[in-house]
Amino acid sequence: MTPAPLLVCADLTRSFGGLVALDGLSVELKQGEILGLIGPNGSGKTTFFNVLTGLYPATRGEVRFGGLTLTGARPQAVYRAGITRTFQRSRLCLELSIFDNLAVGAHQQLDHGLYFNLLRRRALARQADATATAARELLEIFDPPLAARLFEPVAGIAMIGRRRVEICRALISRPKLLLLDEPSAGMTADETAHLMDDLLEVRRRFGDLSIILIEHEMSVIARVTDRCVVLNYGKKLCEGTYAEVSTNTEVRQAYLGLA
């Protein structure tokens, strides 16, 4: 018997006025699987992430994650359930340090009690130390020089570094599912290859992390994904391994306009 899937989205729909950005999408994801999400611009990929993470309420449909029903859940509840994400355009807090940004990612592990924060300063310092250690360990995997710059503002760090910090922010809470929205945008081929190696490495270390990856770089999709879903006009065009999907006539038509 196959184990129950980690994530089940059924008939997920989101419309903005008359525009149906996401149209009856049904997707399943197994634990530990890496799913590629591809499709032309405006095909509803990011909308899918926004609905899944509770930023937009779904117009119709259902999301189940682990044993939980996440339909209509708020972003905070989605995070607590173990889903974190990165954003297409970096949404780090630029004036805060790398450490602060990662600590925001670790929000649920930190003690936010008034008494603890204002009066138990030693215990707070110990928690800060432990968080800094966790942050360094994570940064070491992606970018060791960044680990040495832990308390520098993110604003002073190059684009590629920022993207890595953003991924670390999403990983530090040890999520079960990571949503990556075009992590390779603006990176060179080398940097992209390096980033993907690191992600595979993270998955090896963190056990059964599942990933949904939005990506336009097909070499990345081919290399790291177990399975792909192709979207077009908010609808699922087809689904399968990259090899299957890339030879599908409909997909080629949507992307290249070929008959």
Binding site: T53, G54, L55, C93, L94, Q108, L110, H112, L124, S173
Partner: peptide, 20 residues
């Protein structure tokens, strides 16, 4: 951590909400 949470709220409510 309280000040950090307030910073997160001030700088980017959407990102903050996505991290609980």
């Amino acid at each position: 951590w309280l000040g950090l949470a307030l910073d997160a709220v001030r700088l980017d409510e959407t990102a903050a909400a996505c991290f609980g």
